[in-house]
């Protein structure tokens, strides 16, 4: 590790200890719903790697192109993805980006980025345990979002590829539109149960499928 001034921490254990996503407990508490013809389909993309990058756009762009093969989104509130759609980088603020990669890749990613970046002043923070990704799809997904977030989710204002940080009911969310029919919601671990319950409640009138 060339960047000796920051301390990397490997959170991926060598063995195989029990691991629980933020929604594990909620799934146990709230019976999963599975209505026929559900207007809303809710899933958790559990245990992904979440890394927050902060620093100058130019230096970070070069590094992520090299390491991830994706360019850093320069336009505010946009998300860049790799071809498989498995790795993404989202603009969060002029000096902050959220990288989401398949679970287990986050430590290697951090290491490669630090090596590539050398002594550049950046911050790389692994937050994989602190948040999780929910996906919302189905004919009524947009209505459920309209009940939930004040940001305009109309296709005109929220095209595929957009992503924003905004209010989710009384919590917060990073909301991304991945395709014409699917949304991703990045929620904080401690709020995940609240968000899950809210989505179940707000989706009830359309029918919801959670598993």
């Amino acid at each position: 590790m060339s960047n000796v001034s920051a301390k990397q921490f490997d959170t991926v254990p060598a063995g195989n200890p029990a691991v629980e996503s933020p929604l594990c407990w909620s799934y146990q508490q709230q019976k999963t719903a599975n209505s026929a013809n559900a207007g809303v389909v809710l899933r958790e993309k559990a245990l992904l790697g979440h890394v927050v990058l902060r620093g100058g756009a130019i230096v970070l762009d070069e590094a992520v192109r090299q390491v991830l093969g994706i360019s850093l989104p320069a336009k505010p509130n946009t998300v860049e993805r790799d071809e498989a759609g498995e790795r993404s980088i989202q603009w969060i603020s002029p000096d902050e980006w959220l990288v989401i990669v398949p679970g287990g890749e986050e430590c290697a990613l951090e290491r490669s980025l630090r090596e590539t970046l050398g002594d550049a002043h950046v911050s790389i923070v692994n937050v994989s345990g602190g948040q999780t990704v929910l996906t919302l799809a189905g004919d009524n997904a947009r209505e459920v979002l309209m009940k939930t977030v004040s940001f305009d989710v109309h296709p005109h204002a929220f095209p595929v590829g957009k992503g924003v940080t905004t209010i989710f009911a009384k919590a917060t969310v990073v909301l991304r539109r991945t395709s014409e029919t699917e949304w991703e919601l990045v929620v904080r671990r401690s709020f995940a149960d609240y968000c899950y319950r809210w989505l179940l409640d707000a989706s009830a009138e359309y029918g919801i499928d959670t598993q």
């Binding site: 505010p76 509130n77 603020s93 002029p94 004040s150 940001f151 924003v164 905004t166 209010i167």
Partner: peptide, 12 residues
């Protein structure tokens, strides 16, 4: 001025 779009007051 950083996000370069309008947002509702509750975000601020």
């Amino acid at each position: 001025p950083y996000c370069q779009e309008y947002r509702e007051e509750e975000e601020f």
